[in-house]
Simulated assay, not measured.
Amino acid sequence: MTTFTSLDELRAAVGAQLGSAGPIIVTQERINGFADVTEDHQWIHVDTKRAAAGSFGTTIAHGYLTLSFVAPFLESLLIVEGVQATLNYGLDSVRFPAPVPSGSEVSATAVLAEVTDKTGGAEVRVQVTMTIPSSPKPVCVATVVMRIVE
């Protein structure tokens, strides 16, 4: 975890590694729950028997389920003290280079990519890379945009 005591300290740290977080275990129950909430019941996510015979050999997590781990990972990787709020503002890019098989442990690393002054605070971009032990490729690479309110 990286804690910054001010927005000025954050500005000075552009390019810094923020550390690593996780793992989050992606159980079949978690995948099924996400399918229910999003109404995305595609068989590669929820039909364990059919998926066992498919190209991945098991069910895989939804890409957007994997992406949702950005929130808890960033909560543990980046803290800015002395500000009113840190808000999700959006994403500049998201890629899913590799699948997340059910039962995987997803971890993340992050780099503070950019801090741009805005009225009342700053806009912050963080490059988050999520991995699992069984894959040579990342499972998600996202540029997250946050607004920090002073």
Rank of each mutant, 00 (worst) to 15 (best):
V139Q: 05
D36P: 11
V141M: 06
P133M: 07
L67K: 00
V46F: 10
L91C: 06
L65G: 00
V141L: 10
D47W: 08
D117R: 07
G63K: 03
K137D: 14
L74D: 01
T143S: 11
I44A: 04
A108Y: 05
I31H: 11
A108I: 03
Y89I: 10
D40A: 15
G33W: 04
G82C: 08
S107D: 05
V128D: 02
V141K: 03
W43V: 12
L67W: 00
G121Y: 04
V128L: 15
I44R: 10
D40N: 14
R50W: 06
V94K: 01
V111A: 04
T86S: 06
P72G: 11
S104F: 10
T119L: 13
L91Y: 03
T59G: 05
L67S: 00
S135T: 10
D40K: 15
A110V: 09
E114S: 12
V126T: 14
I148K: 04
S135I: 08
K118V: 11
S55E: 08
S107N: 11
A85H: 02
F69W: 09
V70A: 02
P138A: 15
D92Q: 13
E81Q: 15
A122V: 04
V124Q: 00
D36E: 13
I79D: 12
S93H: 07
P97F: 13
K137N: 15
L65A: 09
D47Q: 10
T116L: 11
G57K: 06
N88S: 15
I31F: 10
V124S: 01
W43S: 12
D47M: 11
A113F: 02
T129I: 08
R95M: 05
T66V: 09
I148W: 07
G57P: 13
F96N: 01
D36K: 14
I79N: 13
S55H: 08
Q42P: 00
S102Y: 05
V94F: 06
G82M: 05
